[in-house]
Design a protein around this nucleic acid. Structure first.
Lengths: 342, 342
DNA sequence: CTGAAAGCGCTAACAC
DNA sequence: GTGTTAGCGCTTTCAG
């Protein structure tokens, strides 16, 4: 491996000058500059990023903490995050916590502050304490998809207004004439996705103050996956066969609801409308294609990278919250007018 | 940040001793050992991985090159690769090439040999030359899913017998009585997935020597995604409405075929059987659930990590090929007996 | 068994 | 403008 020093020797200058040429730092004479560049070329020199990181006190990698990169929403985010990082000369380390906070903890313990100066947090199964501790070690951390812009956490974050997403989904259903609406939420009643449900309640109350109370019987809090949505829909449809629409707080369980409807012989959207939130790639590929509320994933990823880099540059005393763009309704084929009941 | 030296001072020993304790190197007296550990604990010391990497001459990160981590097969592989790496004290850098060989090239140029001593290659849009060059720079590279165990490339790789996968898929169709079989291949005729098609031809020829010739008219080479499969199926079904089964070289396009069948009013599997290869997570979630030939993804990922680590340890003159386990038929709901035509 | 010393490859003051 | 000099934090001979 060729080193900076070798290039310097080859060009007849000192390492410092080569470094200056490469970083466009300091002022270097055009002549020496050319000479150095020629040597770099001739020797096929490439800077050693590890050495540079050590000297600069911070490396070029960002850590992305997810519960499992195979969880289908994360790759879409990771792709954008990696691109954003790359555009800024950084690299992305993918850290699966395997839904185990100990693994997450250990990860932070090992890499934060040395290998990665910046940590992007996507999943919830990390203890807040660990993140705070991580910050004290000198790393910057940003929560990538905080669901409540109005209620910032104690950490820097990119916030997306999921309450509004819930409202948009609900209004769409309401405008189609649905009043018998069930809800499936992909988290615990006090979990992350609960705020989307609050959005639903908002919209319902606006139309008819009595609706939210009824809704409670027709809500299920479940695992945030296809199977969870399937089971909840079956259950809901058993309990309330007259539902004409199901609001689902996330696209995966919504896909499960589509399956449940099919297995029950219910036509979507003629007999039952289904709406999700997020607009994952697969939403457009389901049968029928899923109507959903798109969330600005790519933008959030880019903002997260930008914010964490800024925080690394200089860490403010107070956590920073950046708010990503508004959710957008995406009408596809899984929602339609409420059937008129004989 | 606490450093090794600080720990040493605190414990009243030299940095070397602390290092020895931490790495379980050399022999350290039980007493000093205790003292050092106590100091590590007291100061909350964590080794600086960057410094260690520089001193050791190789870092703890492995690079995973993919065209796009959002391409749904990769995350499943990446998850396993990350786990395997983590188990061995390493970290995984995800590098998207964005289907652009220049991006891939630049990636290798920047990180290989310094940030990452090991490179796992999943995608094909990297020039072989670049990989060879990468090796000369001191990095180890392994191709993660080479499709032809019998025909090793010029690089170390994990091979999976995709020809056999093709055979298994074909035999399943044949055993169900299908003779009018169409094929959809998710790559160019001379592309990566072509060998799966060869497996199909093998099996067909074994049953009836005249079958392969007919098959040629009923084969489409397309983009390796849902849309590609959809369009090809539509085309195929137009050209040969009497097909009773479609062999698809990959699960994504197979999912598209399912959609095409639905849009044509064809019942699967009553009217048309569909089989894929790979067994991605979504295969079990389609309607009907996709019959497919499972490929040992997790095993290949683990082997790839192990091999690359071994190659880093000491690089043999000749490339190494490790062969992963056999593909396995997974029968679900998209295949059934060939309909008897009136 | 423990200490001293050199060095990994690069950057960043500060001189010249 | 360019060279000199110290490190960054750790590992690793080699002495003692």
């Amino acid at each position: 491996m060729t080193t900076l020093t070798e290039v310097a020797r080859h060009a007849g200058v000192t390492p410092a000058t080569v470094s200056n040429v490469l970083r466009n730092r300091g002022k270097v004479g055009a002549a020496t500059r050319e000479r150095v560049l020629a040597s770099v070329e001739a020797l096929g020199y490439r800077p050693n990023l590890t050495a540079r990181a050590l000297a600069e006190g911070r490396g070029p990698t960002l850590a992305l903490m997810v519960s499992s990169i195979a969880n289908p929403f994360y790759p879409e985010f990771a792709l954008e995050a990696e691109r954003a990082a790359r555009k800024r000369g950084h690299f992305l380390l993918v850290c699966n916590t395997d839904d185990d906070s100990n693994v997450g903890s250990a990860y932070l313990d090992r890499i934060a502050g040395t290998l990665s100066q910046g940590v992007l947090v996507m999943n919830a199964d990390l203890h807040f304490d660990d993140l705070i501790k991580t910050q004290r070690r000198g790393a910057s951390v940003v929560l990538c998809m905080w669901e409540r812009p109005d209620d910032p956490p104690g950490l820097s974050c990119i916030a997306v207004d999921f309450r509004q997403a819930g409202r948009l989904a609900a209004r769409h259903l309401l405008e189609l004439g649905h009043r018998r609406i069930g809800a499936i939420v992909g988290s615990a009643p006090n979990g992350v996705q609960a705020i989307r449900y609050v959005g639903l309640v908002d919209a319902l109350a606006q139309v008819d103050a009595s609706l939210p109370a009824k809704l409670e019987q027709e809500t299920r809090f479940v695992e945030d996956d296809v199977e969870g949505g399937y089971a909840a829909a079956m259950d809901l449809l058993d309990a309330s066969p007259d539902l004409t629409a199901i609001f689902v707080s996330n696209d995966f369980p919504a896909l499960g609801v589509l399956h449940a409807a099919a297995d029950r012989g219910l036509r979507v959207p003629e007999d039952l409308s289904v709406i999700g939130i997020t607009d994952i790639h697969w939403a457009r590929l389901s049968r029928p294609a899923l109507t959903t509320v798109a969330v600005p994933t790519a933008q959030a990823a880019e903002m997260a990278v930008e914010l964490v880099l800024e925080l690394i540059h200089d860490t403010p005393k107070e956590p920073t919250t950046w708010i990503a763009g508004e959710p957008q309704l995406v009408v596809r084929k899984s929602t339609g007018p409420a059937p008129s009941r004989g």
